[in-house]
Design a binder for these strands. Structure first.
Lengths: 178, 178
DNA sequence: CTCATAGTTGAATGAACGCTCAAGAATGGA
DNA sequence: TCCATTCTTGAGCGTTCATTCAACTATGAG
């Protein structure tokens, strides 16, 4: 999973995985019938199950509000600016690299986007009820915008990991909610 | 350029290019010293010079205002929903696939982002002067947000080319400007 | 200990990769 | 027409790719 995350599907060879894990090709292929692609799909699921919840944090709880949405964005910026986090998000990378030619991979990505959208819609609904955002704000539509914004944040961050730029994006995204 | 655009750098082989152009390997390598990567960088420049201006349209003129920004976004959505446009943007794809490991490619992407940001900043400044957006809006910061939003739009569009979702993103992005 | 089963291994497969090069074809000024 | 220069060609270079497989080892129930 980590190798696919760091370098992408095509750029990661089985030998890379052999070196990274110490597991030899034969064992890999017997453990993952379907070969490299099946292993990649399993990696996507593992990422969605282990890494995504950690990044979502409190945003993935019923009590989340605008502060947790903000916390999620701040975490993304922090990751993009740290040496280990520059790899971005495996699911964003997969959307660009594989979604067009691999429907199963695209479905996993869509599931992630739907999950993120759901968390954000719920948080914005809570925020509206609490008066933490302007009245009349459309939680569902705004959530879709915020989902796109954080995907875009990661594209910009990959090409230009500049804190000033990334923080300006987040600040202005939230300026529109008040 | 078109092949790299459609399928990405790694997934495009020299033989693909031979089939697509009718030009044989030897000619390709003599025309592009530096091999596949040099050819790819030339393709990026060609894309930035030929395709990007066409997509920018009137947004890349001094008289542009919020209507031209909106026109740009609507064009992106239209492209993402059309069969030929699903390949997205070569520069976004490059940001994800190559920026981390290829500084020259990343620089081309950064140049594109800067250009887009400049167009949007100028248009928003004009819009503010004309009273087409709310007073006190920060043109530079908002431009950065809009740049990120259109990158995100393309990530979402690749995994989920759904007009309802994409149009909601654009509508909400512009709802924040009024 | 015995032995069937499950897991591991290193070597080897054919195919595809990026790339090179000597030989031939086309070009254009004199 | 001639010839020097440039472009084109197809064969082929070594490497790396994903994948397979027979042989080997570890395991655990009886």
């Amino acid at each position: 999973m980590r190798r696919f995350w760091e370098r992408g599907y095509r750029a990661t060879s089985i030998e890379d995985l052999v070196k990274a894990t110490g597991v030899k090709p034969g064992s890999i292929y017997s453990a993952f019938p379907g070969g490299k692609r099946a292993l990649f799909l399993k990696s996507l699921e593992r990422y969605a199950k282990l890494v995504v919840p950690q990044k979502l944090g409190e945003l993935d709880t019923p009590g989340a509000s605008v502060a947790q949405v903000r916390g999620y964005f701040d975490g993304l910026v922090r990751d993009l600016l740290s040496p280990e986090g520059r790899q971005g998000c495996l699911l964003v990378n997969t959307a660009i690299e594989n979604a067009a030619e691999d429907d199963e991979a695209a479905a996993v990505v869509r599931g992630h986007l739907a999950r993120l959208e759901h968390c954000m819609t719920r948080a914005l609904t809570t925020a509206e009820r609490r008066g933490e955002v302007r009245a009349g704000l459309d939680p569902a539509g705004t959530a879709r915008l915020l989902v796109a914004t954080c995907q875009g944040l990661m594209v910009v961050g990959k090409a230009n990991p500049d804190g000033t730029v990334l923080r300006a994006i987040v600040d202005n995204a939230f300026a529109g909610l008040a």
